[in-house]
Simulated scan of single mutants.
Amino acid sequence: MKPGLTRAINPHLLTGAHALGALPDAERAEFEAHLGRCRGCTDEMTGLRKTAAWLGNAVDHVYPHALRSRVLDAVRHVRQVPPTLENVTVFSRRQGFRRATVLISAACVVTAAVAGAHSALTASTFTPMAVSARTHVGDLLSAPDLRLLTARDQAGTAVMSYSRDEMLFLADDLSALPRDRVYQL
């Protein structure tokens, strides 16, 4: 690269070096011309100069003036570390719509499952019965794993106990049948 030409393609990357006075004269002149046109770089330069001044005041001893030129000469011989590349996944619009469709479908399935579970849990009702604990029905109703299931619009309740391996069906408002007919469950 010829001396005097800007090393950085993007002049916005030179704000830190300019704030510290580390640009060669040709690059400094080019960058200062850029500062007149770029408000963002001007604001950044103001902040960087203030920070450099605060850091300079925090130093407890002063380095010799010739040290700066020696460091800048040595830096020219130091090889820079190559930039790291970031892997960025870019999705097309079609892939984005496909993902959105899948997510919306999954949300609908979850909503339906929650609504169904809520409906099943709130549909059961318990109708208290006065039963003596000494009867077979009373013994079943006092089982520790008793489950009551009632359909929403039906007049019956199923009482189940898995530990006893028994089930009882209770019905309300069944019409009386003639003697030759029976209800079957």
Rank of each mutant, 00 (worst) to 15 (best):
D145P: 00
M1H: 08
L177M: 12
A115Y: 06
L185Q: 10
A58T: 09
D173R: 15
R39S: 07
E32K: 08
M167F: 04
A113R: 11
T125H: 13
C108W: 05
A74W: 08
L72N: 03
T150A: 14
L148H: 11
H12W: 02
Y63L: 15
P24T: 05
L72V: 02
A52F: 08
Q80M: 09
T127F: 06
T51A: 14
A58H: 05
R181A: 13
L185P: 00
R98F: 07
R93H: 03
A58K: 10
T111P: 02
R70M: 09
D173A: 15
P83S: 11
I104E: 00
G36F: 04
R76C: 03
F126N: 09
S161E: 02
G40K: 12
H77T: 14
R147N: 05
A66N: 05
L48D: 02
L67E: 12
S69Y: 03
R99A: 09
M167C: 05
D25Y: 01
R134E: 12
M129I: 09
A130G: 02
L140N: 06
L174K: 12
A158D: 06
D43L: 12
L5K: 10
D73A: 15
N57A: 12
L174C: 06
D145F: 01
L23M: 05
T122A: 14
R70Y: 01
K2R: 09
L121H: 14
P128I: 00
A17M: 08
W54D: 12
A115F: 07
H61S: 13
A19R: 09
V62T: 15
A143C: 01
C108V: 14
Q80F: 08
T101M: 03
V62G: 00
M45A: 11
V109K: 03
H77V: 06
V90L: 15
D172Q: 15
G36A: 15
A113H: 06
L168H: 07
I104G: 00
Q154Y: 07
M167G: 09
A29D: 06
M160T: 12
R99Y: 02
V137T: 11
P128W: 04
N87D: 01
Y63D: 09
A120I: 00
A74T: 01
S175D: 11
S69R: 13
L20H: 09
L177N: 05
L13A: 14
G116D: 12
P178H: 07
D139C: 02
F126I: 05
Q154E: 13
V81Y: 03
F169Q: 12
S142N: 13
P82Q: 08
T15I: 11
R76I: 00
R39T: 10
T42M: 08
E32M: 08
A17E: 05
V182K: 14
T46V: 11
A33Y: 04
P3E: 07
V114W: 05
A158S: 09
V78Y: 07
L185H: 09
G56P: 01
P11S: 10
D60P: 00
L48G: 03
W54C: 03
R164H: 07
Q95F: 03
E32I: 02
T84C: 02
P24K: 08
I104N: 00
R79K: 14
A22R: 11
A106D: 01
T15D: 04
T157N: 06
Y183D: 07
V114D: 02
A29M: 04
D172F: 09
